[in-house]
Amino acid sequence: MGKKYNRVLLKLSGEALLGEQGHGIDADILSTYAQEIKAVQEAGVEVSVVIGGGNIFRGVKGATQGMDRVQGDYMGMLATMINSMALQDALEQIEVQTRLMSAIRMEAIAEPYIRRRAVRHLEKGRVVIFGAGTGNPYFTTDTAGSLRAIEIEADVILKGTRVDGIFDSDPEKNKEAKKFDQITGDEVLKRRLSVMDLTAFTLCRENETPIIVFNMNKKGNLKRIVVDGEPVGTTVIWD
């Protein structure tokens, strides 16, 4: 069975796991995401995942007002580990082999992140989840996603969101917002469209790593992009 991409990095936001809840993890969404990942993994695609921690960390954000920025960032990294462990469990329950690798050493629950080992796991068909961001304060999970994608030489970064792609304005606020099927990186910067933070975006630009922004909540979208090569969402290309 043919496939469009051999190795991908899927970037999910922590907020995506909220569902209709105000905080925490929606078990149905987690299960749906696991099934979507399984479908592409079974087609022979090597899948790695980075998840944010907004759904967990937002609940404690009030407590971090006035807190040292570095301390707050480390708390955010631990939040990503909670989500990563939840996704790992959801995948293993449907018999998908996984490895969870953490940028911060916590041997009881995850392997330390070692690039060569991560690549080896992918080659063996395991889904690799990268937790704890980059392991450094002042960097977002978007940046962690870009960095890991470049390190493992992923063909593409797939940014799973709850909207259908990149629009000229916020589609959740403006019903007239126009979607781009394809857009250059320069145009994204010129229009100041919020695709990723600037550090993450610059990393992709320097390494010419393509980005596809798509709606992860529409069943089958991930497989349509990765396996079938359908033009779903918006592709960011580099001149």
Score class of each variant (00 low, 15 high):
77 M>Q: 10
139 F>K: 02
155 D>H: 07
66 G>W: 01
105 R>S: 13
161 T>G: 09
173 K>W: 01
76 G>W: 06
121 H>M: 12
58 R>H: 13
137 P>R: 05
1 M>E: 11
165 G>M: 05
94 I>F: 10
143 T>K: 00
45 V>Y: 02
9 L>C: 03
239 D>T: 13
59 G>S: 14
118 A>L: 04
197 D>V: 08
13 S>L: 03
182 Q>F: 10
67 M>P: 04
168 D>M: 07
204 C>L: 08
15 E>I: 11
65 Q>N: 14
18 L>F: 06
99 R>C: 11
16 A>W: 00
234 T>I: 06
181 D>K: 11
164 D>G: 07
127 V>E: 05
37 I>P: 00
212 I>P: 00
211 I>C: 04
91 L>F: 08
33 Y>I: 14
74 Y>E: 07
102 S>G: 11
165 G>T: 02
137 P>Q: 07
206 E>G: 04
160 G>T: 09
23 H>Y: 15
234 T>H: 02
213 V>E: 10
230 E>M: 11
37 I>M: 07
172 E>F: 04
40 V>I: 14
81 M>D: 06
143 T>Q: 03
29 I>E: 04
9 L>Y: 09
181 D>V: 08
90 A>W: 00
143 T>Y: 07
51 I>Q: 03
169 S>N: 12
174 N>G: 02
18 L>N: 08
23 H>V: 14
218 K>G: 06
79 A>P: 02
151 E>L: 04
209 T>F: 09
90 A>Y: 03
119 V>G: 01
187 E>D: 14
66 G>H: 04
19 G>K: 07
40 V>S: 03
231 P>R: 11
28 D>S: 12
158 L>T: 05
211 I>Q: 02
64 T>Q: 08
72 G>R: 09
36 E>H: 08
213 V>S: 05
119 V>K: 12
157 I>W: 00
98 T>C: 10
